[in-house]
Amino acid sequence: MLTVNTVGRVFPGGIEALRDTSLRMDETDFIALLGPSGCGKSTLLRLIAGLDQPDSGRLDWDGGAPVPGDIGFVFQDATLLPWSTAEDNVFLPLRLRGMTRAEAMPLVHAALHRVGLAGFETARPRALSGGMRMRVSIARALVTKPRLLLMDEPFAALDEFTRHKLQADLLEVWKQAGCTVVFVTHSIYEAAFLARRIVLMTPRPGKIAAEIASSLQPVAETRLDPAYAALVTEISRAMAAALA
C-alpha cells in the first residue's frame, strides 16, 4: 500500500524528529509504532496522513496518492464537535465531500453500529463517556471506508477497563473493515495485544530501531494467553536494548 522511503523531518528550531525512516505497509497490516515520547512516532503518523511534509525522503503510494476519505485519523482526544450529535460528528467527513444527509445516514448509522453505539445517534458528546466519545471518533474515521486507519495513542487517556474493551473491539473492527491500521502507542502491552507488526522507535533523533512480528490470535482472549506474556517480554527486551 505504502512505502515510507528514508524519510526525515527537522522541525523549525532544529529538533530532528525523524531520520532516515523506512517502513513498508501492506493491505490489512496492523502495525504498532511503539516508543517513548519524542521518538517521532506521531510525526511519522502525521507525515503519512499528509498533515505534515517530510524534509527528506518520500512516501510512495501503490496506485497513486490518497484522496480525502482514503485515510482515517483518530487522535488521542476524541476531537468531536461538541455542538454536534454523534450522528452529525460521524457525518462530517461525508458532508465535507459534498454528500447529502439523506445519502450519508445509512453509512453513518452502519459506522455507529459497528463501534457499538447503535441507539446513541442523537447524543451530544457531553452526554457520552470518554470511551463512548472515542467510539464516535473511530466511527467517524471508518465512515469513509478508509484504506488506511491512523491512530495516535487513541486509548491513552481512558481507564484500563474501558481501554481493554476498546482494544478488543478495535480488533473486531479491523478484521471486518479489512483496512490497514497504523497505531501509535507508548504502551508495550497495547502494542503486543493489538498489532501484527510491532515497530520499535527510539528518540533523538527519532528512528526505527527494530521490528517484531506477532503470531498471536487477534481476539480478546489473547490477553490470557501465555504467548502474549512472552511477546511482552520479547518487546520489553528489544526496547531496552534499543534504548541502551
Binding site: 502525521r46 496522513a49 499528509g50 498533515l51 484522496v67 480525502p68 476519505g69 485515510i71 485519523f73 487522535f75 482526544d77 476531537t79 464537535l81 462530517l92 467527513p93 465535507l96 465531500r97 469513509t144
Partner: peptide, 18 residues
C-alpha cells in the same frame, strides 16, 4: 477550535468556507 480539529478538516479536504 483545537488544532486537531483543524487537522481533521484538512485531512478530509475541507474548503475554507466549510
Amino acid at each position: 477550535a483545537p488544532p486537531e480539529l483543524d487537522d481533521l478538516f484538512r485531512l478530509y479536504g475541507a474548503r475554507r468556507w466549510q
